[in-house]
């Protein structure tokens, strides 16, 4: 589904991804782990098409199509969803209106008709119950004044509503209590199926206790340095990233970050 080959990208002339390759098949859940500054968020943003990041080499194919040549909204319509690490506030725009506009924009790009307001409400009601979002947040402005946990739930709500083929979760688990973490995990599990894939970007393996990944990758210095099955996550938790990268467990900085 997603084939990234030798990807080089950076920002303001500084190279951050230095030849990253990974291959995600439909039906799989991949975890990308790594210390701060290893390029995790850059990977998420480059795949979603964020402007300031420049791709300087390599390619990324999404279902065989050139992902890097598409506008962000085209990537979304193709089925790529990014759950933001820092969801953005949009004052004055009611959350519900935003969700419906987004859903209809996606459908419009796919040549589908708009959902009727009644049908939309029905769908939304299902998903809101599923993620346990406080209903008053639907009437409020998008993410404005939401707590950290509410913002993440709102991201999971959008993921559930838009039903993407490939969802990238950019540290969606950071700063969440155990209940919110379960909401994220349940959101992934509810959508998990043979047609979909997930890339879970995370700093520590807590979320992976609830969502069992098929593959775990260690990102370091802008490339994948190690890939293995789910057992790798536990190993990283025990030994830190230094071990994974170099065979020695002396990277205190990374370890401090990893066990935070």
């Amino acid at each position: 589904m997603l084939a990234v080959q030798n990807l080089h990208a950076g920002i303001s002339g500084k190279e951050i991804l230095r030849g990253l390759s990974m291959d995600v098949q439909a039906g799989q859940v991949h975890a990308v782990m790594g210390p701060n500054g290893s390029g995790k968020s850059t990977l998420a943003h480059v795949l979603a098409g964020r402007g300031p990041y420049e791709v300087t080499g390599g390619q990324a194919l999404f279902d065989g199509a050139d992902l890097l040549g598409m506008a962000p909204e085209e990537r979304a319509a193709a089925g790529l969803f990014l759950a933001f690490q820092h969801p953005v506030e949009i004052p004055g725009v009611a959350n519900m209106y935003f969700l419906r506009t987004a859903l209809n924009s996606l459908r419009h790009q796919r040549g589908q008709s708009e959902v009727s307001p009644g049908e939309f409400l029905r769908q939304l009601e299902d998903k809101v119950s599923q993620v346990g979002l406080d209903r008053t947040l639907l009437q409020r402005s998008v993410n404005e004044g939401f707590s950290g946990g509410e913002k993440k739930r709102n991201e999971v709500l959008q993921m559930a509503l838009f039903e993407p083929r490939l969802a990238i979760l950019d540290e969606t688990d950071s700063g969440l209590d155990i209940d919110a973490l379960r909401v994220v995990a349940d959101g992934v599990e509810a959508l998990r199926g043979p047609q979909r894939a997930f890339v879970i970007i995370t700093h520590h393996q807590r979320l992976l206790e609830y969502v069992r990944p098929d593959r775990v990758h260690v990102l370091s210095g802008g490339r994948i340095v190690r890939s293995a099955g789910p057992e790798l996550a536990s190993e990283l938790e025990a030994n830190g990233y230094g071990e994974a990268r170099t065979g020695r467990s002396t990277d205190e900085l990374a370890r401090a970050g990893a066990s935070r």
């Binding site: 979603a48 979304a76 953005v88 935003f98 987004a102």
Partner: peptide
């Protein structure tokens, strides 16, 4: 902000 525009576009809404 660029943040707001990108957030909307990632959800499928044109610039």
């Amino acid at each position: 902000s660029e943040d707001q525009l990108f957030y909307c576009r990632q959800r499928g809404i044109s610039e």
